[in-house]
Amino acid sequence: MFPYCSDPNAISGLTWLSCYLTTGKHTSLYLSFLTVLVLLAITAPVALVFGFGGATAARSRFAPLSWLGKGYIGIVRGVPDIAFFLFFVIALDQAFEYLRHKIKCPDWDQPIRQGNDFVVCAAAKLPLGDAPQWVHETYGFFLAVLTFSIIFGAFAANVLYGAMQAVPRAQIETAEAYGMSHGQSFRRILVPQMWVYALPGLSNLWMVLIKATPLLFLLGVEDIVYWARELGGTKTPKFTDYPHEDWRMWYFGALLVFYLVFTRVSEVVLARVMRRLTHGQATMGGEAQRKAAA
């Protein structure tokens, strides 16, 4: 990085540290913070969509759809996320490739499962075999987002399902009295009102989601914990210009600070959102705001 870094053995102290902290490997660590933040930013809304779909399905009056919704919520919530991560991504990847294979190579005559191997035609590979590395990484990232969304979607569905039930019955009855159809009262009355009931649950879910990111490496995404472990491990002079002892303590300490700060910021922001949402609602919180204003 800096010109004086060419011979790390000759420098010491802060100069050494400035060189050490700007190696390509450390850049990967810094970038992985970005990866985690981007992943969270994409996963949260997608999981909310899954959750909304799951909750709506579970409430459906059409029995099979309702079973589907309830089954999704029940099964995914019942399994530890780590167990899911260990096989789900491979399954997801194979499912996509299988579908593409069926569409793109209808004339293929060899079996797809050859012993343990999963073989699809070259055109169906995801991403294509000759795609550059960044495409592979983006695809892996996309699979991770999808897996996270499916898992946390089930928890979100559970929260939203409860929130929909918590909207006072009288509100819906009033809507019906005004002659609204089932769909209209759902869109205009139920959905706008349910968020205030859902927010405490959803904010906790967000906190859980933040803390699930160390498991990203299981999904093939090189996250902050992977790099912290890699960088912190003992380094012998033979394989690096910057040998050091077991420094994992420091790296994990930095991660701890990152997570604590991130949690704190989230708490403050979510509290503000809650105040916003409570405004004008028929709840105790809304009542209190009205009284305070008056």
Binding site: M207, P214, V225, F252, L256, Y259, L260
Partner: peptide
């Protein structure tokens, strides 16, 4: 409460073991 709720269990295990 803040420290234990604000950090991943994974990292808590690591520090506890040390």
């Amino acid at each position: 409460i803040f420290v234990f709720r604000g950090s991943p269990l994974f990292i808590q295990f690591f520090f506890a073991y040390f």
